[in-house]
Simulated scan of single mutants.
Amino acid sequence: MNIGIIGAGAIAHFLLEKINRHRHENLRISSVFVRNKEKYRLLESAYGVSLYTDLEKFLDSDIDLVVETANIDAVKTLLPSVLKKKDAVLISVGALADEALLTEISDLAHAYKHNVHLPSGAIGGLDLLQNAHALGTVTSVSLTTRKPARSLIEEDIDEAKTVFEGTAMEAIRQFPKNMNVSIVLSLAGIGIEKTSVRLVADPHIDKNMHHVEVIGDFGEATFSITNNPLPENPKTSYLAAMSILGTLERIGQKIRIGG
């Protein structure tokens, strides 16, 4: 499968290393869409890709699918055009907190018969949540995210401090760079207005920690994840990067587990 990537940041470099540099058996990144071609010119020789600054030419290149690794603004401005021609994988799922955009993307995907894949990002257990909610009987989903204090607030604190408590919708509006997890959790379950979120700044930790609780007719489930940072960029979750690679590998499989 030939892949086109939007963006050239930490996650894009991770994918280029794992797929192109290591010569993945079934995947190949052939095109990369960037804003500044000269800035990223070395990617062409390092990974054997073609750079594009024109979206239409990028979409018309020899790619089967587009992976967005940029940011929420890129999803809002580029994804509608992408879905008219290609399937897509999104990492900046926080953009989908915009209900109008979510509706537009859903309508375009149906109209042009293309798929939108949302990797689980920095958490897991989404298959359990989706299965538990198959009959609409999950009654409560809550997420508590703890992050190193210095990554959330400027003030010096000695004890953990709750900096946000509310719905997933409010969380992504106030912390657009920190709460993608809450949106993908909401989309898998009871929605962004009903999913409860608490964000804690903790001066005693150096990794992001997520704790999810699900309650419904099926029973109760809890799961916790502690994320190591991506070695090349400590601001990016290693698991979030790996979730994209895992999603790409599963797309081409004839036998799939879970879901």
Results as ranks from 00 to 15, higher is better:
H211W: 07
E249M: 10
E99R: 15
S142C: 08
H114R: 15
E25D: 12
A241E: 03
G125K: 02
I29Q: 03
D127W: 11
P234W: 03
R198D: 02
V214A: 01
A74D: 06
S237N: 05
E232K: 11
V197H: 01
K161T: 11
E38C: 01
V32E: 05
G125R: 04
D217Y: 08
T222K: 11
V82I: 11
R21E: 14
D54F: 08
L129Q: 04
G166H: 05
G191H: 10
P80I: 07
F175K: 03
G252F: 08
I11V: 15
A201R: 00
L43K: 05
I215S: 11
E213T: 13
K18P: 00
K85A: 09
I215L: 13
G94R: 00
L129D: 00
A171V: 05
E104Q: 15
T69Q: 06
T137F: 12
L43M: 11
V141K: 01
E159R: 10
K85E: 11
G258E: 07
T167E: 05
K207H: 10
Y40T: 10
D60H: 13
Y47L: 11
P119H: 03
P176H: 04
D217Q: 13
T137W: 09
P234N: 12
K85Q: 12
T103C: 09
M1W: 02
G259S: 14
R256A: 11
L126V: 05
R250F: 11
Y238I: 08
F33L: 15
G4N: 05
I255T: 11
H13D: 13
E193I: 09
I192C: 11
A70W: 00
S182R: 02
D156F: 13
D156I: 12
L135A: 14
T236D: 00
R28K: 13
F58P: 00
A46I: 09
I190L: 09
A132T: 05
F14N: 04
T103P: 00
A122K: 02
E170N: 12
F175A: 05
T137P: 04
A70T: 11
K147D: 08
K39Y: 09
G136R: 03
N233D: 15
K85F: 06
D73E: 12
Y112G: 07
G94N: 07
D54G: 08
G259K: 13
H210F: 12
N178G: 10
L65P: 02
S142E: 12
E17V: 10
A241F: 06
G259Q: 14
R173L: 14
P203C: 08
G191I: 09
T162V: 15
L135G: 08
L128R: 00
F223M: 06
F33H: 09
N2F: 08
L59H: 03
